[in-house]
Simulated scan of single mutants.
Amino acid sequence: MAAAIAGAVAFTIVAAPTPASAALPDGYRVETSRDGDSLDMQIVDGAGRYIGWAEFNADPWGDTPGDAIRAHDISGDGLGVEAWLDIDPGSSFQADRIASTRGHTSPYATPWITGNIAEGTRVGLRICLVQGATIYCSGTQYTYA
Rank of each mutant, 00 (worst) to 15 (best):
S91G: 14
D45P: 07
T101N: 09
V81R: 09
T12H: 12
W53F: 15
I87W: 02
L79C: 01
S91A: 14
A6N: 15
G66R: 09
D63H: 05
S75W: 05
H104P: 06
A58P: 01
Q131F: 06
I69H: 12
I113D: 13
S138C: 08
A145C: 00
A22H: 05
R29V: 02
L125C: 06
P111Y: 08
D40T: 06
A68D: 10
E55C: 10
Y144T: 14
N116W: 14
Y108K: 04
Y108H: 15
A16E: 09
G76H: 08
S138I: 06
S21P: 00
A10L: 09
R49S: 14
T134S: 15
V130T: 15
R29N: 06
D86L: 01
G62R: 13
T101I: 07
A47D: 12
A16V: 00
D73Y: 10
A15V: 02
T32W: 02
A16L: 08
T64F: 13
R49H: 15
N57C: 03
F11S: 08
G78D: 06
S91P: 12
N116Y: 14
N57P: 04
I13A: 15
D77H: 03
V44S: 08
D37C: 02
P60I: 01
Q131V: 05
S75T: 00
F56V: 04
S75K: 06
A4K: 12
R29F: 02
A2V: 01
D73A: 07
L39K: 05
P89R: 02
S38N: 02
A16C: 00
G90C: 05
Q131S: 15
D35W: 10
R97V: 00
T32C: 01
G120I: 04
T140L: 02
G103F: 04
T12W: 13
I69A: 13
P25G: 02
Y144K: 07
R70S: 04
P65R: 05
